[in-house]
Design a protein around this nucleic acid. Structure first.
Lengths: 340, 340
DNA sequence: TTGAAAGCGCTAACAT
DNA sequence: ATGTTAGCGCTTTCAA
């Protein structure tokens, strides 16, 4: 990296200019220890003139050996769900002087691991992870034991008792599926995320099955499909519609699934299928009928995680705790269509 | 301090354990300079046993006096547009060993300034800013002169010639408005962002006016309204519909405006107004008619910005350049409705 | 109220 | 092939 640049002024430069020691400047700037009004004034003047900015790296290194950042790893930064989670975290930690460090794992354990390593090497003050499915987090035991705030979001850690913030996935799915059942549906498809081992998918599938069971309805595997993106969901729904004994309602278990499913129905001109989706979507209320959803509160997930992290940072050494955030059913009509 | 954190092992600890000097360990780990196979092996073994992780802060400080991060400031992390931009940046800089530092200005110059200061204090390797409207960036002249990659996204800097990546806003608005005009509309409302001074709003309004002028249509200020969020846009559209001489088409100049406008029309049961929006939206294709949009490519904005930053980091000292990314009209039907 | 020296963990620039 | 010394910019510790 070619940086030309007159050297940035350092504490020593300011000190030299004023004719005091570096420590005195430091004292003035950090309001640490006494200093005469006269020196203070001169120091501040020199700071302004030189455009001096203390080097946070040097400070952190000397002081805490911890960087004033919170590392966050999500599967996909572009996914609005995670973006909103990140926003919730950033807002909550900012006032404590912490900055958000953000990386994307692309839902792979290798990339997640690489990012965790980088963040640990940076000596982040806290680490938040939406773990890629299939990972194993036992290797982080030691960090946790050493007091590093370590919080798993949206999905729990694997092989490690750590703080965790999740939504009430199973309950939400049960609520959404129950809503369809209450309107007479008996053949309800489940369009879930992939891979099939994904925590949220499993929890939501469980809720879906519990709702069926509670109503005495059979569980038909032919009605359960996976799709990670809208295109795949679109295709999956078309296939479901072509079944000899097709579903009369869809439960789409995440935002992308809902998008794809709604598109497929719309393009097929099928306005007769009931739909309930997990996760709210921007234009959900503008569809006719409006899309009924089980809404999570992603910003609240972020805030809750930040709260736990800050408590840990403040010395809370109690056992790992799981925070489960409520979800709510937003009825807009699409779940109330009667069976065909 | 009940049982806090054993000190993390340092290079010196590893060296002591192996019986070599710290520099040797450093050489092995960074593959910098020669080392015998035997030492290498012993060192790596000790590193593994101790769970040693080099302290990146210390390294960065010694090596470059630059932190291996790119600072990004956006108005709102939760806005999917900026989230996608951030994703594009992160992906592009990751392979260069750079990490993304993310902050939200809440569209205020004060908060933007505070974040810039923090990032500069951290000695980021590059700074990317979606500037809050009303700011003045002359104070960054010196940083730029010192070779710090400084890139403005979505909106240009104010008072400073700096690298900049924007979309073809005026052209896009002209394209979208032209599409409505081509379908016979003469009274087209413009629902723009706020504040009115916002760069993108001004550019898009310009494109809108140019399209009107090119078609010999009058510009009616009564048809131009502002709204920053969907709710406000919803309200604004209702008001437009109640006008004595209401518009027959809407040009919604950003994602939130489109959301609000579409909701308002849907709730009012008005399927007779043509609409073209700036920015694509998830369920746009599922509406009936589908929502025609002028789509930006936010990930490409991020990638382009990353490219410029990396070039600067590699020593490119050519003049400030503005990259303008093309937008495209995605016709889905809502722009083709004839005038009422 | 202020300063001098030491050192955080690492590597550049010389040694050997 | 390896070691030594110095020092990045700051703060801690101990003196004055």
């Amino acid at each position: 990296m070619a940086h030309d640049a007159r050297r940035r002024p350092t504490l020593a430069d300011v000190a030299a200019r004023v004719g005091v020691s570096a420590k005195t400047v430091s004292r003035v700037l950090n309001e640490d220890g006494p200093s005469s009004a006269a020196t203070r004034e001169k120091v501040l003047k020199a700071v302004a003139e030189l455009g001096f900015q203390p080097n946070l790296m040097a400070r952190n290194m000397r002081v805490g050996n911890r960087d004033s950042t919170i590392g966050l790893i999500v599967p996909e930064i572009g996914n609005p769900f995670f973006g909103t989670v990140a926003g919730g975290i950033e807002e909550a930690v900012r006032e404590r002087g912490l900055t958000l460090l953000l990386g994307s794992s692309d839902e792979t354990v290798a990339q997640e691991h690489a990012l965790v390593s980088t963040f640990l090497a940076r000596r982040v003050s806290g680490l938040m992870v939406v773990p890629a499915s299939g990972g194993d987090h036992r290797y982080l035991r030691r960090e946790r034991a050493d007091g590093l705030p370590l919080i798993f979001l949206d999905r729990p850690a694997s092989g490690l008792a750590a703080d965790c913030v999740v939504s009430a996935n199973a309950e939400g799915a049960q609520l959404g599926t129950g809503h369809l059942i209450a309107h007479g549906h008996r053949r309800i498809a489940f369009i879930g995320d992939r891979p099939a081992g994904l925590y949220t998918r499993k929890q939501r599938l469980r809720g879906y099955r519990e709702a069926l069971a509670a109503a005495g309805l059979p569980y038909d595997r032919a009605l359960v499909v996976d799709a990670h993106d809208p295109m795949a969901a679109d295709t999956a729904v078309r296939r479901l519609l072509a079944l000899p004994d097709p579903p009369t309602a869809l439960f789409t278990a995440n935002n992308f699934a809902s998008q794809g499913a709604v598109s497929a129905l719309s393009e097929a001109g099928r306005r007769d299928l009931a739909v309930v989706g997990f996760d709210d979507l921007p234009l959900a209320g503008a569809l006719r009928p409006g899309l009924t959803v089980v809404a999570q509160d992603p910003a609240a997930i972020g805030r809750a995680a930040a709260e736990v992290a800050l408590a840990r940072l403040d010395g809370d050494r109690s056992g790992a705790r799981t925070t489960t955030l409520p979800v709510k059913l937003i009825e807009r009509g699409s779940g109330e269509l009667p069976p065909i």
